[in-house]
C-alpha cells in the first residue's frame, strides 16, 4: 500500500485509488464539481488540480494534475494549496461564474476562492449547466444513454437526440438528482412524471396508492435484474409497514 505526503501529512491508501481519495484520507478538502463516487473519474471540471511530485524527481519539481483521475504512487508528495494551484482554481471558477452568474453553488465556490464578480464578459444567456457531464455519465452507467453532450465549443449542451423527447429515457431522475446545480428540471405527480419533455406513467403502490417509480424504469430494471415487476410497485413506506407488522408478530410470539 503506497504512502504519500499530502500537505506535509503522511497517509497510506489502497493501491488502486486516485489522488483525490488520498487527499480526503489525509483530511484535506479538494474542491470538485464533476466527481461522484461510483462513477469513473472524468477530469472535466479542472477544479481539483493539485501539485504533485514523485520521489525520484528533483525536490522543487512539481507537476499540476487533476486529483480525481491521477493514480497514487509510492512516495508521492502532494500539495493542494500552492499559489499556482489556487490561481488555477480561481481562473476555473472565474470562467464558471461568467457562464453561470446566477447559480448559487458556483457563486458560493467562487466567493470561497475570493471571487465576488467574474472578470470575464458575462454570459448573455445565463445557464445553470456547467457541462460537468455527470448526468450523461450516470445515464450511461445505468445502461440507458438517453442524453448526451451535443455540438461543441460555445454551442455545447446536454441534450436528448434531435432535441426531442428522448425515446430511450426511462424517467428515473438519475440525471436530475446527480446534477450539482439542479439544472435539469422535472415534475412528479401521483400519476405522471415529466422530464426532458417526455411524460412517464407512474407505478403506484397497490396498498397505499403512492407513486413509486415510473413504469419504464421498473421495466428497465426488471429486464436487467430478473426481479419481478411487483417488487418495484411497493413503496418504501409499504415495505416499512410490512417490516413493522412482522416485528409486531414476532413480539407477540415471544411474549
Amino acid at each position: 500500500m503506497p504512502t504519500l505526503k499530502v500537505n506535509g501529512r503522511k497517509v497510506t491508501v489502497a493501491e488502486d485509488v486516485y489522488l483525490l481519495e488520498a487527499c480526503r484520507a489525509a483530511g484535506v478538502e479538494v474542491p470538485t464539481l464533476c466527481n461522484f463516487d461510483g462513477l469513473e473519474p472524468w477530469g472535466g471540471c479542472r477544479l481539483c488540480v493539485v501539485d504533485m511530485s514523485l520521489a525520484k524527481w528533483d525536490d522543487d519539481w512539481f507537476k499540476m494534475v487533476t486529483a480525481c483521475n491521477h493514480p497514487v504512487e509510492e512516495g508521492m508528495t502532494v500539495i493542494t494549496d500552492s499559489e499556482r494551484v489556487l490561481a488555477t482554481r480561481r481562473v476555473v471558477l472565474d470562467l464558471l461564474l461568467a457562464r453561470c452568474p446566477e447559480t448559487p453553488l458556483i457563486q458560493r465556490l467562487a466567493r470561497e476562492h475570493g471571487i465576488e464578480e467574474t472578470s470575464y464578459e458575462l454570459n448573455p444567456e445565463p445557464t445553470d449547466c456547467i457541462l460537468c457531464g455527470l448526468c450523461t455519465r450516470v445515464c450511461d452507467h445505468i445502461g440507458v444513454s438517453a442524453i448526451a453532450s451535443t455540438d461543441r465549443g460555445w454551442g455545447r449542451e446536454i441534450a436528448p437526440p434531435f432535441n426531442e423527447p428522448p425515446p430511450d429515457c426511462i424517467g428515473c431522475l438519475a440525471c436530475a438528482e446527480i446534477c450539482p446545480t439542479d439544472h435539469i428540471k422535472f415534475t412528479t405527480s401521483n400519476s405522471c412524471r415529466t422530464i426532458w419533455g417526455r411524460e412517464f406513467e407512474m407505478l403506484r403502490d397497490p396498498k397505499t396508492g403512492e407513486a413509486v417509480i415510473t413504469k419504464a424504469q421498473a421495466e428497465h430494471f426488471a429486464a436487467r435484474s430478473g426481479v419481478p415487476m411487483t417488487y418495484f410497485e411497493t413503496s418504501d413506506r409499504s415495505k416499512r409497514l410490512e417490516v413493522a407488522k412482522t416485528v409486531e408478530r414476532l413480539r407477540v410470539v415471544k411474549s
Binding site: 450523461t136 445515464c139 450511461d140 440507458v144 444513454s145 438517453a146 442524453i147 448526451a148 453532450s149 451535443t150 441534450a159 436528448p160 437526440p161 434531435f162 428522448p166 425515446p167 430511450d168
Partner: peptide, 8 residues
C-alpha cells in the same frame, strides 16, 4: 450504439 451517442 445509443441514439444519443450517434447524435452527439
Amino acid at each position: 450504439v445509443p441514439l444519443a451517442k450517434v447524435f452527439s
